[in-house]
Write a protein that binds this DNA or RNA. Structure first.
Lengths: 209, 209, 209, 209
DNA sequence: AGCTAAGCGAGACGGTACGTCAAGTCTTTCA
DNA sequence: TGAAAGACTTGACGTACCGTCTCGCTTAGCT
């Protein structure tokens, strides 16, 4: 028996049906995700049709549907991985600096070309119940972990207290950005992001003695 | 340019092309919006196909497209009107009470059946450039006005200072709710809403001596 | 009111849903049938996919499916019309001559390239209940009428008696040909056809005193 | 060349590639054919997909394709064997009686549930060049032998003359039935079968004084 | 009041992508 | 070594809904 790396962990109990890891399915996942990422970059979500993905990746449509429940799921995973790379954890030395910088980076990301793709993806996953778990897994969980990390640092430094839940932190810091991106009401400038972050952090962190 | 000309009546300068008011077009608007509202209530956005709206309202598809640029636009306007009714301005006597209560109400609305329709609508307007102005006009502007009103009261009472822009207030208070609704990550309970509001308001309002 | 040519007659009570005759649907029927005929000629039934027909005819797939219940139905009608042209009624002067000649012609038709398409079409209509009525209408009824005509002449001449039903005539004369074509057991030569016809006609016609 | 070498056992020279007889391949043949027969009985040809046959028989798809060239071939053989059992040679004592009774039996078979499966199989073998030899071998040859037997008796009795080829006999007697079955134009009743047989036999047999 | 022309209802149409199905081939694993 | 298991490619299927269009009828608005 070959020692399989545990295929669980990823997406256990999240609505994501994991596929056993094998050289074959690995190649397929890789091809599909790469092709999807290219298409998303080139023409956004509308360009990433399943037919196009199949053609570009050399993986057949039927096989794609065996590995993912829907187009939105494929796109969510592909884009989530891209986004994670684009948003490494900052380390400025101070709690406020780290969080504020992260807000700025996310804001900048939303303001970029890829930002619109992100919005389209949110929309797609709202429409598609099967896609939602993928969205949560590949967008949120990663980001949530990152922010948790920063928040741990803040607690350790005594900048924050346990009375504020980390989930609230995340939502208060990044919810406004998504709101702005989705509604397209305001431009997402760095200044606006920093201003938002400052105001929000006043409620989240302990105000200096 | 930030200063937009005040929306003169029906969305001038907002991408919304108004139609001349005539008995005929009035009847059409009314029928279409009513039918759309019914359909949205009954089966959400997916049920409100243009064919269905045409059939239910007795207004032909061609005519619908003469008055609105897209399905999303029709739905946005119809739903926006419904939502406004469901969220009257609170008056608890205190600034914190008013804002907190409004957050709670919006959260409850999102948690209701109609909340999902709202999410679908956001998604639809992201995909559809023509629908977006309608979304902004009939969802955001109304709400923005309402919150501005509350914020004026706060300023008058000295609970808030001019250093915080009202737009930031709105985004920080309601962005997190939309974020949660769209991602489906958390249940939108009253307690969660109140907790979020309290934390957020700590950053927004002057902390009383 | 425009005087419409009666749209009934064709396919009443046969499982064929007739479409009202209008310039629009006329153009569509024409384009689709012509395109289908070309494709059948070029690559047989397998080439006449609905997508190919749609592309070639400029009529969309959805529209094709509004006018015909299935691919087999389209093909049956298209091919039936072609076949009718290829098999005009013979007139040799004698009953035996006419019928024998018709058997020969049908045999020759089956032996031609189009003969295989015919077999494919029979097969397609066996598999597709929705196609069968079209097959009957556009292949059989026409041929049945032709043979009835010949049989009337035979009766008039006293070559045949009323004790033999015209349906039996048809089936006994042409059934063997189809059988041979479908099973591919024997080549369909003129000689074989004539031999078959002679033998069969001995049972069908009054044997001359 | 007309004179075909007699089919030596399993279809030599008929397009059927025989497999070496071994305990293993015997078991495989048996399992596959039995499973296919069950499936054909239960749901007709559409139910006898290769996947279903593989699953039911415990023989893998790859192996099935090593022994038969196509799905149609498997089904043709399986069904041919079933059909042979269902149609034993009649012996009524008279030539006309035997042939007429056989026509009646075949007609009844076509009219039964299995009759439709037969039609589907004919259709399948028309589409599939690889299946056709199997169809001929397992359907036609057996039947042809049976009718030849009856025809020998007729010749021996002096009921028929050598001027009528046995192949013509078969086609004229059974072609009409297949024709009716495939086109679905007429019900295949016993009366109709007997009537057809009587008329056809008038042309085939010597009209005894 | 009657005529003309725009507005409208009805619904057919083109287009695009969807998700599904089964045939036949290929690879991996087990006996 | 050969078969079981089942993943994979391929190609077509039939469906859904958008937004556009064409056709007659209706109704407003002018003479």
């Amino acid at each position: 028996m070959k020692a399989e790396p545990k295929a669980a962990g990823h997406g256990a109990g999240t609505g994501i049906v994991p596929h056993p890891i094998s050289p074959r399915s690995d190649r397929i996942h890789q091809s599909v995700l790469t092709a999807t990422q290219q298409l998303l970059r080139e023409g956004g979500y509308p360009a990433a049709t399943v037919d196009a993905i199949a053609q570009r990746s050399g993986v057949s449509k039927a096989t794609i549907y065996k590995h993912w429940p829907s187009r939105a799921a494929v796109a969510a995973k592909a884009f989530g991985l891209m986004m994670a790379e684009a948003l490494p954890l900052p380390d400025t030395g101070t709690t406020e600096g780290d969080l504020s910088e992260q807000v700025r980076r996310v804001s900048a990301f939303y303001a970029s070309d890829l930002g619109s793709v992100f919005a389209q993806l949110v929309a797609a996953c709202v429409d598609d119940p099967a896609g939602a778990p993928y969205f949560r897994e590949y967008f949120l969980n990663g980001r949530r972990a990152a922010i948790s990390e920063l928040w741990q640092r803040a607690l350790a430094r005594g900048d924050a207290g346990p009375e504020v839940a980390v989930d609230d932190v995340i939502d208060i810091l990044f919810g406004p950005l998504i709101f702005r991106k989705l509604t397209g009401a305001y431009p997402l400038t760095d200044e606006a992001a920093v201003s938002l972050a400052r105001t929000a952090l006043r409620g989240l962190l302990r105000q200096g003695d």
